[in-house]
Each structure stands twice: as C-alpha cells, then as structure tokens.
Design a protein around this nucleic acid. Sequence first.
RNA 1: GGCCCGUUCGUCUAUCGGUUAGGACAUCUGGUUUUCAACCAGGCAAGAGGGGUUCGACUCCCCUACGGGCUGCCA
Length: 480
Amino acid sequence: MVSERLMPPMSETTAQSNVVTRFAPSPTGFLHIGGGRTALFNWLYARGRGGRFLLRIEDTDRERSTPEATAAILRGLAWLGLDWDGEVVSQFDRKDRHAEVAHQMLARGTAYKCFSTQEEIAAFKAAEEAAGRYPVFLSPWRDADPASWPDAPYVIRMKAPRAGETVIEDRVQGRVVIRNETLDDMIVLRSDGTPTYMLAVVVDDHDMGVTHVIRGDDHLNNAARQQMVYDAMGWGVPVWAHIPLIHGPDGKKLSKRHGATGVEEYQAMGYPAAGMRNYLTRLGWAKGDAEIFSTAEALEMFDLDGIGRAPARLDFKKLENTCGHHIAMMDDAALLQELDLYLAAAHRPALDAGQHARLSAALPSVKDRAKTLPELLEKAQFALISRPVRMDDAAALALDDAGRDLLRGLTPRLQSADWTKAALEPVLAGFAAERGLGFGKLAAPLRAALSGRSVTPSVYDMMLVIGRDETLARLADAVR
RNA sequence: GGCCCGUUCGUCUAUCGGUUAGGACAUCUGGUUUUCAACCAGGCAAGAGGGGUUCGACUCCCCUACGGGCUGCCA
C-alpha cells in the first residue's frame, strides 16, 4: 500500500484568502529565537495572503508545561508584533477530542489496542538489535482477535502501512520519500487515555482548519507519521513546509553558550522589533536582493519558495546593521514608544516627562546614528542630562585654558544670534576664522561644554535641541 | 547503527544548464567631515571532494566527507 498523495492544488491565486497557519510552541521555556522566526514565517505567510494565523499551546506534557512559560511566549510574540486570530488554543483542553479520534480510528480499523508492556517492547527491540535489524517494534496485537484481548491496560496504536512508502511533498524540502517499513505503529493514545503528540497535532491542525504547516525541519520525519493519521481518518493533508533551524555564529545548534537564545533577551538588548522582524525574515529567506524592508513590504513579498534549505547562522553584526536602518526609518513617535518598551524590558529607569520631551526633540539628530536603542539613548545623552554637566576625561582636556578662552569669546555672540542653524553657522565659523582657527578647534571645547564628552552629534544640533538658555548656561558653567 | 535533510565569498543569500557567479553584512583602501557615526567611491572574498549525464554544469544523478534532525506511552 502506498499512501502517496498528490499535492493539494494550491496555486497562489486559489489559496488567496483561505490560508490558515499556526504557531504551536510547547510551554516549557521562553520563546526561542528560532521559534520566533517560525512564528514570523507563519504570520507573514497567512497575513500576507489575507489568511488567518492561529496560536496553539502544546501543553499536553503536564510535567514540563508551565503557565509562566506560556506567558513568556505570549510576551515574546507580542513584542515581535505577531498577533494571532481568535483564542489561544490549549492542546491539553482538547484531550477528550483526541481520545475520541483515537477511538474512531479503532472503529475504522486503522488503529488497534496494544497490550504489550514496556518491558516486552524493550526486550523485543533488544532482540532485533542483537539480530542486526532496526529496532522497529512490531506489536503482536496488531491483528489480534478481540476475543483474545486481556483485561489489562492498553495503548492505541496506529495501524501503519508496513510496505510501500510515504511521500511528503514539502514546499521547502521538496519531495521526501520515507519507506514505511522504517516506521513503527506509533502510539496515538497512551495507556492512561491521554493523546500523544503525533495524534494531537493532527487532530488539532485538522479541527482548526490549518492549511499550511510551517515548522522546524526537526519535524520532517514526523510529517510522514502524521500524514498516515490524516490518511487513516480520511482527512485532507495540509501543505507541508519544513524550515531549517537557526544555528549559532559557529554553525552549531543554537544554545545558551551562544548568548541570547530567547526573543525577550533581544528586546532587552535594545534591538527594535521592526528591525528584528526584518532580520529574522531575511534569515533563511530571500527575494532577489531585498535586504531592508518594512513589515508591510515583507507581508507583500514573503512566500514559501524563497525559503532556503540549509540552516542559517545568527550574525549579530548584520542584525545591528538592519536595526540601524530601521531606527533611522522609524518615525519619532514610534521610536519613543519603542524606547519606553526597551527601558522596561532592560529594567532601566523610565524617562520622566521632561526627558521625554527633550529626547523627542533630539531624536531627529541622533536616530540615523544608532544601531540599537541603548546606543540611541547614549547618543542623545546631551539632551537628557541636567546641569552641571559632568565632564569625562577627554572633555576636560578640551576645556583647557585655551578652550575656555574661546568659549568666553563666543558667548556674547551667541546671546545675540538668531537660534537657527543658518544663523548660527556664520557666527561660529566667523568666530573661529577671527581667531585663526579651524572650525574643529572651536567645536571641541564647545562640544565638551555642551555634553561633557568628546563624541557627540553635531554641535549645531545640540545647541538647537537644548536651546539658547541651556546652551549659554552650560557654557557659563564650563568657563567658571 | 538505521532513516531523513542539508553543503555558493568569513556570514545571510541570488542564480532555477550557457553570467566576468550578483547583492547585503563584515573587513580593507580612499573621499567627505566638527568628534563619532553616517554617507560616497573602490578592493579582497565562494560553488566541500570525487565520479558521471550533457556540446556545456553551482544548477541534474551517484559516491564520499562534514553538519543537522529523527529513531519515546516528549513535544
């Protein structure tokens, strides 16, 4: 028996508005960066086609599932801006439905009760291995007469085809053929009546109307067994798309030692969500030479064909570069909001109203200079501080006798100048020229007096942002 | 061990039998400049190895190597 099936018709046009995807994490920890990308791909694919994106928490493992993990996953998704349709589905809550389907399989003859004990199975596998065969368990109960059934605990096993092959038509991996003899009769319902993952995913995906299963390629082999369940129930198989996992910078599986593995850690490091989405979208997916794009553009462009088959490595340099572009592109109000979120996530003190206003004024002059949110704050430092300005070593050096003398000479001219860049430029340039100095010689002490540092945005930008009074006050402090 | 998947510049990738193998990040050089960043110009840099198929392979097939996944009454 060959359970091969044709790919469902799914030209982009017919699939238009009825695409349903889902993200189905198990709540055993924070939202992993790889999971975040999987969610993103599902979200992009569905939303980009006017379809629906669903969220299901696979919490059937009661030992390891925690409400805290679920909350963390939801927070991570929310930060990434991945909103889902409808209620969050709890897989555990659907256990009765899963059991019901298992019994339907029994009734249809596509599953059977297996009374073998775990000891018997272990012994069987050991014997097989000793004989040099794959330890694929062949249950003696597969075709047993119900009359022979003992009054003992049993599991329900899928009656999987023993011969032939199962073919997965995968939109990313291509045509994957698995010989049925390498697959055993998997358990669909445990002896305690609870469903296994293999049954639960299929039932839930079917009931939720999922049309496209986009998930990590660690599930590629599972797809064959799951497809058998679809076949057993006479259900239509969804479109499969198994995407490669993300690796650390060294090419190894992403783990704690690579630093950040949780989505929320990236938020706390100050990467803006829009930049994160852009970077993650491009990690393992491409459309021509598109590199920097908005979420709206990503929605427009994203498709399954652009997904690569090899695992991609995380590259923080490129992440930063991408985020830098997004910080520069973001409008000030959105940026300010992003900044507040970051401060909270990083457990840093929030900005007060005054700082908010000054930061807002400073944003245009600093936002194209920062790659991360903390860097942005750092560059805007001149607007956030209050007098007296604390000088760092380099700034103190610039405010030597000669520097202070320059500032004393400059002060009266500033008092009478119009406070615009156009008016200020000739004033400063003229003053420097009078003293026979290059502009840089004047800018250094001025920069130091205004910011207490030697590295800042343009001196004009700083003066304009903090205003005439504050500028003069800082100069007065510096020459005192 | 068995089965499945993968392998283009350091990194992310384009290429869907015929290209000087393109772009981006990183890096290097030069320019601009008011510090830093940005920006502009340019440079370096790739088809894992070996067999086929073909007039012609990065592209199709096979083998090997390396990496990954699965092989649970976990998900």
